[in-house]
Design a protein around this nucleic acid. Structure first.
Length: 497
RNA sequence: GGUCGCGUGGCCGAGUGGUUAGGCAGAGCUCUGCAAAAGCUUCCACAGCAGUUCGAAUCUGCUCGCGACCUCCA
């Protein structure tokens, strides 16, 4: 696509929808905060990464060359802000009697498996925090040199107050005022090293019992949480880049701190567009690791979670996520999942049908239908251009699927739309369904081939009016989640809705 | 307590000043060996109150309810 559509994105930095104009007209740099790999990712995590997968896919579809960087946090998350704060990875390692990097590897693998199941495209670069210790130390050092960070007892803190005196923008992303933050800060233990309670750790001294540690100019220690993202985003995308994404919950303090560090280091505004994905909820409450309401992808796929009475495939979950806009909260329930399973199969069936459908000779054109189909396609893309409104795009796919099904079942004549429109529908449906929304047919090829062969037996039995046999084959199909379609002019199978 | 957001039909969920969102469920019809699938038709709506406006689900104010962040969190 040479001419790129006008895309509007909701920038959480300005709280406005803005026209998307990347720094370089043809290239886009996008950084998304990835998972901390000390535990299994849950559905909430998956939602955020799927939201940004759509953004990555769509920008790519529109012809942008996108470098998508999503980090793996494998060190640096403190369990609490106290001096005796312990690294999450290290804590888990002790608990399970594993090497820290063994924990990291296990959960990284699990994360990748789930991303693959959900058909999320791998990022261009997936840097890990432990792979960038040297760069992190260098950035911390430069912040000290600039007088915006200070060392106390082998730990280094960012001087928020001083930064704000110079730049005056601390809190601009999360809409916070420094005075209010001070007024509302609770007294936490071990704050005594900091000059101010809002100062955050850039580097933490490792106590003797810490197993994840690196030597630094300030002694043995480990990096603070926020610094890795400033380091890795600037290293791979430059000191100023286009899109920074993450979950809404990271807005404060993480992204706020990131802005402060990067701005302080480079004297530049680090990010043009901040995009935040909203939370996944269960019974209206946010799904969180520490809240005890986390549902794991495997539990949903297998139906082993207490909230569910059956399993739903990864594509059903993906479809459900895409029906909701990424900036809205999304509530998960078995009723919603069931509705989505049916809806998804309907669109998948239409996608399959569209592959086999062709026109013979175009006769008199039904102008109204022809026009409606073109409008459906336009509206779908308009939705995508309007802050990646996948729900609109999906609603248009449903609208398109009606006439397509009617053509296939010979309830309407396929030759009453123009050849141009028909080709456009085929191309657009496929692009939207597969390339942009990333929805795929999950069934195994052998399984499908077997079903198709079995359908021949069905056809024969039907011709011979052996209805017992016909009914038996039907029930076999049904037991495998398939349904036989007996149409006026032919027989086919589809996925049960 | 501070800051911010949300409340849409039986359920999920788009939409932000006038025009059918869409899906699931329900009702009816066509088709069929019987069904299913599919198509067509149809029912059901914008938390409450007041205001602005020719006109509000959409803007303003208030009330009620829910949630998020302020501490690790996608």
């Amino acid at each position: 696509m040479n001419t790129k559509p006008e895309i509007f994105v909701y920038n959480t930095l300005t709280d406005k929808k803005e026209k998307f104009e990347p720094i370089h007209p043809t290239h886009v740099g996008m950084y998304v905060c990835g998972p901390t790999v000390y535990n299994d990712v849950h559905l909430g995590n998956c939602r955020t990464f799927t939201s940004f997968d759509i953004i990555y896919r769509y920008l790519t579809f529109c012809g942008y060359k996108v470098r998508y960087v999503r980090n793996i946090t494998d060190v640096g998350h403190l369990v609490d802000d106290a001096d005796e704060g312990e690294d999450k990875i290290a804590k888990k390692a002790k608990l399970e009697n594993l090497e820290p990097m063994e924990v990291v590897q296990r959960y990284t693998n699990g994360f990748h498996d789930v991303m693959k199941q959900l058909n999320n495209i791998s990022p261009s670069i997936e840097p890990s925090a432990t792979g960038h210790i040297v760069e992190q130390i260098a950035m911390v050092q430069s912040l000290i040199t600039k007088g915006l960070a200070y060392e106390v007892n082998g730990s280094v803190y960012f001087d928020v107050l001083k930064y704000n005196e110079i730049k005056g923008d601390y809190g601009k992303l999360s809409g916070r005022v420094l005075e209010d933050l001070y007024a509302n800060t609770r007294d936490l233990d071990g704050q005594n090293e900091k000059r101010n309670s809002l100062d955050f750790a850039l580097w933490k001294k490792a106590l003797p019992e810490h197993i994840m540690r690196w030597t630094s100019p300030w002694g043995d220690g480990f990096p603070g949480w926020h610094i890795e993202c400033s380091v890795m985003s600037s290293k791979y995308l430059g000191e100023t880049f286009d899109i920074h994404g993450g979950g809404m919950d990271l807005k404060f303090p993480h992204h706020e701190c990131e802005i402060a560090q990067s701005t302080a280091s480079f004297d530049k505004i680090p990010v043009k567009y901040w995009l935040h994905a909203n939370m996944l909820t269960v019974n209206g409450a946010r799904m969180g690791k520490s809240k005890g309401n986390a549902i794991l992808p495997a539990q949903l796929f297998e139906g082993t979670h207490e909230l569910l009475d059956k399993g739903y495939s990864p594509m059903v979950l993906r479809f459900m996520m895409l029906q909701t806009h990424y900036r809205s909260t999304m509530d998960i329930s078995k009723e919603a999942l069931l509705a989505c399973a049916k809806g998804f199969n309907k669109l998948l069936n239409t996608y399959k049908i569209l592959q086999k459908l062709s026109q013979t000779e175009v006769k008199e054109i039904n102008q109204k239908l022809d026009e409606e189909l073109n409008q459906n396609i336009e509206k779908a893309f308009e939705g995508m251009n309007d802050d990646f409104n996948t729900g609109i795009a999906i609603s248009q796919l449903f609208n398109i699927s009606k006439p397509i099904n009617a053509f296939f079942n010979q309830q309407a004549d396929i030759n009453t739309i123009s050849a141009k429109t028909f080709e456009r529908v085929k191309t657009a449906y496929s692009a939207l369904f597969t390339d942009i929304l990333g929805l795929i047919d999950e069934a195994d090829e052998n399984f499908k081939a077997l079903a198709t062969e079995m359908l021949e037996i069905y056809k024969k039995a039907k011709e011979e009016k052996q209805y017992d046999k016909v009914d038996a084959i039907r029930s076999i199909f049904k037991s495998k989640g398939l349904v036989i379609k007996d149409m006026k002019t032919g027989i086919d199978w589809g996925y049960e809705e």
